[in-house]
């Protein structure tokens, strides 16, 4: 399991290649990259705040649950904080498994949990001002799929 919380940018393609090269015996690798999307008002940047210490711990716990639940060869989670420009990668997950169903399900689970249970907060800074992104009830509903 590899978990990284960083302000530095990352190259999702290079990260996926490195992850794939290190995994032994996996028949399936799934990856997801979350990117800063533009908004109608014109996004200057996205500020991502986090809770140093708890963040890493929470992600390791979530990744551990995925490992316990599905047959996985390895898991990678990278999540950035700080000021990010539109189009910049925010985070990525990659899962490797003997079979694709486990890799897809685990990546989906990780995304749902990282969204609502890892201590990150997004603020959109536009030409009209700055607003915290509100959590959606759909995000909580998504978690219940895994009960």
């Amino acid at each position: 399991m590899q978990v990284r919380v960083q302000d530095a940018a990352f190259d999702a393609g290079a990260e996926l290649n490195a992850f794939s090269a290190e995994v032994k015996g996996a028949g399936a690798i799934v990856s997801f990259t979350g990117v800063v999307r533009d908004v109608a008002a014109g996004l200057k940047h996205m500020q991502i705040e986090h809770y140093p210490g708890m963040t890493e711990q929470a992600i390791v716990k979530i990744a551990g649950e995925a490992v316990a639940r599905w047959s996985l060869s390895d898991v990678l989670v990278i999540h950035r904080y700080g000021d990010l420009s539109p189009g910049a990668p925010i985070m990525m997950v990659a899962t490797a498994a003997p079979h694709r169903a486990d890799a897809f399900a685990a990546a989906d689970f990780l995304m749902d949990y990282l969204k609502s249970r890892a201590p990150f907060w997004k603020k959109e800074v536009t030409s009209k001002g700055a607003d915290w992104v509100e959590a959606k009830t759909a995000d909580e509903d998504a978690l219940r799929r895994w009960d």
């Binding site: 990282l114 990150f120 907060w121 997004k122 992104v133």
Partner: peptide
């Protein structure tokens, strides 16, 4: 969160060293 672990508002504080308050998280 109590000592960096999510908790409820009725949770006891005995032995807790760090309490954090924040809005619902918006990661991912």
């Amino acid at each position: 969160a109590l000592d960096q672990d999510l908790a409820e508002f009725d949770a006891p504080l005995a032995g807790v060293r760090e309490v954090a308050f924040f809005p619902p998280m918006t990661g991912g």
